[in-house]
Amino acid sequence: MNDSENMYDPEVGARDRDVEKRKNKLSVGFVVFLIATIILVTLSSLASFSLAFVQSGNIATAIGSVIGHSHFFPLVTIAIASFWQSMRNMRSRTKIYFFWSILTLLAALSQWAKYLTSGLSALG
């Protein structure tokens, strides 16, 4: 069957429309993953902001820290990954942001632990 015969076959058109619907549909799992990513990005941004603000005492430095650590590095990674066509979708970009937010949150928490333990040892 060639393309001109497929054009008149209603079954082929219905299958193509079903495939298109599945491509554009967001799954429940992805929506949950997206919400978890937004929560993690918010937590890592807050942790980065509060640590930079406590250490420097300057709000501009704290905002710069949030922009740099929580948003600039993931966006650069997304830009580099977008060179590959398979990475040019929302799911891939959300995964990159998710894993960067985990790294940023862990780094900020470890810096908080270091800051708090050094402050306690200086007191005692």
Rank of each mutant, 00 (worst) to 15 (best):
S44A: 05
A62T: 02
Y8K: 08
I96W: 01
I59D: 09
A108L: 01
S65M: 04
E5N: 09
Q55L: 15
G68L: 03
T117P: 02
A108R: 01
F98P: 02
T77N: 03
S110Q: 10
L43H: 03
S110C: 08
L26T: 10
E20W: 08
Q85R: 14
T77G: 05
G124N: 11
V28C: 06
W112L: 01
M7F: 15
G68A: 10
V76A: 09
F83Q: 09
Q111K: 11
A36G: 12
R91D: 12
A79P: 06
E5G: 04
H69V: 15
K114A: 14
T94R: 07
Y8M: 09
R22H: 11
S45C: 00
F53L: 05
N58K: 13
S44K: 01
A122G: 03
G124S: 06
P74Q: 02
A107I: 10
F53S: 01
D18L: 14
G119P: 01
G68M: 03
P10D: 11
S48C: 07
V76P: 01
R17M: 11
K23L: 15
F53T: 00
N58C: 07
S86C: 08
V31P: 02
G124Y: 07
V66C: 00
D18V: 07
P74M: 03
G13P: 00
D9V: 00
W84V: 06
G68C: 02
T37L: 03
S27H: 11
G29A: 05
S27V: 05
S121D: 04
L34G: 02
A62C: 05
I80K: 04
I67S: 04
R22T: 11
I35V: 09
M87Q: 14
L51D: 00
T94G: 09
K114P: 00
G124C: 02
L106A: 14
D18K: 09
S44N: 03
G13V: 09
S44R: 01
S110N: 08
I96N: 01
S86I: 12
G13E: 10
K25P: 01
L109Y: 07
F72S: 13
P10H: 08
K95W: 13
A36N: 08
V12F: 10
A14I: 12
F33D: 07
V19T: 14
S86R: 15
L51Y: 07
L43G: 03
V31N: 09
F99W: 01
S92I: 05
A14M: 11
V12S: 08
A81E: 06
T117D: 07
S70A: 15
A62G: 01
